[in-house]
Design a protein around this nucleic acid. Structure first.
Ligand SMILES: [Mn+2]
Ligand SMILES: [Mn+2]
Ligand SMILES: [Zn+2]
Ligand SMILES: [Zn+2]
Lengths: 158, 158
DNA sequence: CCGAAAGTTGGACTTAGTCTAAAACTGTCA
DNA sequence: TGACAGTTTTAGACTAAGTCCAACTTTCGG
């Protein structure tokens, strides 16, 4: 269900690098559409976390946001991430040892955890197919994902 | 891979209830077979954690073991669980918010997380089938599991 | 028995995350 | 504009999970 678009990876604006930060106006509007009042802090946090492919932890978000907005407090970042999550702008995932991380891709998809670097990557929904989910006895399934662990075979030579 | 046996659930002695504790002698032998010296503390810890179906956290193991062995220290429980994990007697899983838990079923299998109670249940390996894992580009897959979330439809009326 | 190695212990320490109460903003309306 | 209420942010206290450590105890080989 939930018609995952066919994107192979990054059908989105392909942000990811450090100097992310989409137009603040667009971000403010995105927040408003989800019922979140766009304060300065919230826009600063959103401009990183809603655009990343990194699955960052809360403290990683804090560190990133402080670069551009040094006086933002930890409580604000934690509150805001929770708020975004409640409003459906983010998902919170718990995939690996001591890392609860946030994911701006709220549509169903799978995940790959690199055992060497700890990096988490998205796997598009229809890159994999899970059979027999509907045959599970006595379980009311709300959602599921495949968690794949291994190492990324580096295509980083040439 | 890793030829998961066909067990539907609990092909093992079906322990689970509180008064678990299989024969201490058998447990000591199991530890030795895995290269773990069977001290009194380790046998006490093993006799709970190697037989449970509960996926307990480290502190839950501590609480349980203290009932029968009140002077055991927290450090010992944490050390021992790590030791067991290194020796392949346990796996450590991170599936849900603030819960890294231990699993005595080290063969590949899937998991169900009850969103209401937080309980984690095993799903036998061939109750589900994941297709196209081998087609993932650039990833060296070491293991994978399906994580299913939902609620257990209570068969608890009659 | 002895000494070395392995195991255990309580408590200090660390880190992620939550909570709180006060301060700062924001929007509304007189 | 000025007052007010509601909302947001803030620093720092607090909590809980987990690690580390140095001292103590047990085990084992000789
Ligand atoms: Mn751990
Ligand atoms: Mn959280
Ligand atoms: Zn993701
Ligand atoms: Zn399991």
């Amino acid at each position: 269900m939930a018609a995952p678009r066919k994107s192979n990876r990054s059908a989105a604006p392909a942000r990811d690098a450090s100097a992310a930060t989409a137009a603040p106006r667009a971000i403010a509007e995105q927040l408003e559409r989800h019922g979140v009042r766009p304060s300065a802090q919230r826009v600063a946090i959103a401009s990183y976390v809603l655009g990343t492919e990194d699955h960052p932890s809360a403290d990683q978000v804090w560190a990133r946001v402080k670069e551009r907005f040094p006086m933002v407090s930890r409580a604000t970042v934690y509150n805001t991430l929770r708020h975004f999550t409640e409003k459906g702008l983010l998902r919170e995932l718990v995939l690996a040892e001591g890392r609860q991380v946030f994911d701006p891709v709220v549509e169903p998809h799978h995940h790959f955890v690199d055992d060497e670097t700890g990096a988490i990557r998205d796997i598009p929904w229809n890159a994999l197919k899970v059979a027999k989910i509907d045959e599970l006895e006595g379980l009311d399934v709300r959602e599921y994902m495949v968690v794949v662990r291994g190492v990324a075979r580096g295509a980083r030579k040439g």
